[in-house]
């Protein structure tokens, strides 16, 4: 009994010591979310008291409470009932994201299937070009994209953000990886049974590459939902701005409202992340291991 007890205590201690850094890192990671939740439940006065050095430039340091002294839903109510501009930008974001994702389904998926399943001369070169484009930062592509969109008279429209997003290379890269994993024998069997290439793609390629497709779409959703550079570069009309451009516009005097808006903005990708987390893990693993 004594030996067992000693082992248990040592084990616990070891576990604590082993988990402490991870727990500390998790706390740091979760900190902003907690900050958002508590901040959105604080009134203007309480927030002003805690954040005075930041908001009003007073001396001292920011303080914080993890439970609001005077909790209020005022910020949430104001956001939901008295902020049409928030919803306007939210749905702008959703329109952009949905447009890009649908476009990628229509264009990126066949492209990835073609690259993965139809070897042709220069196949590797094309794939290499995709990789190259994927690695290029947006700043490098911004000017050419801007000039093309200007010629097409698409600047200052949602298409200026959606079209380049549709032809993003990362989903092709990710889906390519999963499509290459589909056994050739299954495809051959289908062809022998009389299935055309379209049916092969729709009934064999898509189901078997579903994990890659879903993970690509989820990652693209997360990326598009927080997109800032592209709208800033190609959109001038405020009515077209996505939510990511609205949040920084909220003044310091409406800090509580900003917390509430950020919380709602966070909830959408967070729920989607939890919904498709298994696909995401596989997709990230695939892109990391097989890249």
């Amino acid at each position: 009994m004594m030996r067992r007890k000693k082992r248990t205590a040592g084990s616990v201690l070891f576990s604590i010591l082993r988990c402490a850094p991870v727990a500390a890192a998790a706390c740091v990671a979760v900190g902003p979310v907690v900050f958002l939740v508590t901040g959105s439940l604080m009134g203007r006065g309480e927030l002003g008291e805690y954040l005075a050095p930041v908001l009003f430039g007073t001396e001292g340091f920011v303080t914080w409470r993890f439970l609001p002294m005077y909790p209020t839903f005022q910020n949430i109510v104001e956001l939901l009932c008295d902020s049409p501009e928030f919803f306007y930008m939210f749905w702008n974001t959703m329109r952009i994201t949905a447009g890009i994702l649908v476009g990628q389904l229509l264009c990126g998926m066949p492209a990835a299937w073609g690259l993965a399943r139809y070897p042709f001369r220069g196949n590797r070169a094309v794939y290499g070009l995709y990789i190259l484009l994927m690695l290029m930062p947006f700043q490098a592509l911004m000017l050419p994209e801007y000039l093309v969109l200007e010629k097409l008279s698409l600047n200052n429209t949602l298409w200026a953000v959606i079209l380049p997003g549709i032809f993003s290379t990362f989903p092709v890269f990710l889906m390519y990886r999963f499509f290459t994993e589909v056994p050739e024998e299954i495809l051959e069997a289908a062809r022998i049974d009389g299935a055309g290439e379209g049916r092969v793609f729709l009934y064999i390629g898509l189901p078997l590459g579903r994990t890659g497709i879903v993970s690509a779409l989820l990652l693209q959703f997360l990326e598009c939902f927080g997109m800032i550079e592209q709208p800033l570069a190609f959109l001038k009309d405020q009515t077209l701005f996505p939510l990511a451009l609205y949040l920084p516009e909220i003044g310091a005097e409406r800090a509580g409202f900003a917390f509430a808006a950020s919380l709602v903005a966070l909830a959408v990708p967070l729920l989607l992340f939890f919904a498709g987390s298994e696909y995401l893990e596989q997709g990230i693993a695939a892109s990391a291991l097989k890249g």
Binding site: F87, V214, V268, L271, L272, A275, G276, E278
Partner: peptide, 20 residues
């Protein structure tokens, strides 16, 4: 896909549409 979170996501969109 986690059905619960997927439904929550859909519900959240519906709520946001309502409050729009």
């Amino acid at each position: 896909m986690n059905r619960f979170y997927a439904k929550s996501f859909a519900a959240l969109l519906a709520v946001l549409l309502f409050f729009t």
